[in-house]
Amino acid sequence: MIPCSILLVEDNLDDIFLSRRTLRKAGIDQIAVASDGLEAQELLFNPVLPLPELLILDLRLPIIHGLTLLTELRRQKRTMTLPIVILSSSNDPKDREACLKLGVVAFLSKPLELSALQQALCDL
């Protein structure tokens, strides 16, 4: 299944550029971008706006850390079951473990690779 709407939470413009490029290759065009944790929270918790089908979340974000945001999302009813893929340059096993415990679809390393993305989408 290929999600048609995706929210990408990422602050670095180059990383956004690279992620968009890979997503496009996977056939996903509806990509919204939040450039920090707070902005993402506002978009996701706004009852007027529809939820994206998939959230791609960086961990090292300004203002609100990715892990903090993830914990908050899992606590809120609205976003409790939202499919989330972590895309981080971290390969720290502690981060990975913490994220998987909070029920993320996949923990991917930057740069986003097409094959890894497709594998994760299959798991959805």
Binding site: N12, D14, L18, S89, P111
Partner: peptide, 16 residues
């Protein structure tokens, strides 16, 4: 390690 990995990963992606 994160701070060094981030630009390296970026360079990797950009060069690809």
């Amino acid at each position: 390690s994160h701070e060094l990995r981030a630009p390296v990963a970026r360079l990797q992606g950009l060069s690809q």
